[in-house]
């Protein structure tokens, strides 16, 4: 006698045996196996209704899993808008400030050079610059100018402008406040 196909028997009893060939083999086995016939009958009697008891489940409090999606997106959009506005405003302010710093400084230097050209007194112009910008370390610039009397005022003026710019940029943090006071 062949070994009983118990797994297929159980699947068949509950309508879950989907392979026609295995089903046919099971039928062939059932014709000759009394034990499997009895087990099939028992399984068919052992149906779901046997255990139903009418017990009433207790109520369950159902919480919202999260805020509805459109509200979430709404707040995300608002937050993104605020961040974008702050970024744009900050960038505009910074660029404007930089331009103001540079143009104010250039104008001040040009005025002093013009004054020096008019008075033939570059040293006086430097002293005036130093007075106008008290935090500016223009000592080295002044020393250079003192040792270059042979240079013409106009030739020296360009170098002076460059030195002052470098010096200004190196101390721009402290100079900005002084310049715009």
């Amino acid at each position: 006698m062949s070994r009983c196909p118990v797994n297929d028997l159980i699947l068949y009893a509950y309508g879950e045996l989907e392979d026609p060939e295995r089903e046919a083999a099971l039928f062939a086995h059932l014709r000759t196996c009394k034990s499997c016939q009895e087990e099939l009958e028992f399984l068919r009697n052992l149906q779901r209704g046997d255990l139903e008891e009418g017990a009433k489940p207790p109520p369950v409090a159902v919480p919202p899993l999260r805020a509805p999606v459109h509200w979430r997106f709404h707040w995300l959009r608002v937050a993104a808008g605020i961040l974008l506005f702050l970024f744009a405003a900050g960038t505009t302010w910074w660029l404007t400030t930089q331009r103001q710093d540079k143009s104010a400084f250039d104008r001040a230097v040009q005025n002093e050079i013009l004054l020096a050209a008019q008075t033939d007194s570059l040293m006086a112009a430097l002293r005036n610059l130093n007075l106008a910008f008290p935090g500016l370390d223009s000592g080295s610039v002044l020393a250079d100018c003192a040792g270059t009397e042979v240079l013409s005022l106009l030739g020296n003026a360009e170098r002076l402008l460059s030195d002052l710019r470098d010096d200004f940029q190196a101390h721009s943090g402290s100079q900005k406040e002084v310049i715009f006071q």
Binding site: A55, V62, P64, L65, R66, P68
Partner: peptide, 26 residues
């Protein structure tokens, strides 16, 4: 339910209340 519908979640609870409770109780 994951999008925030409590009605959908409640429908799931109602659907499985009895078989789940019967299983756990047994």
């Amino acid at each position: 339910a994951k999008r925030g519908s409590t009605k959908a979640l409640d429908a799931l609870v109602q659907r499985y209340a009895l078989p789940l409770y019967s299983f756990i109780r047994a």
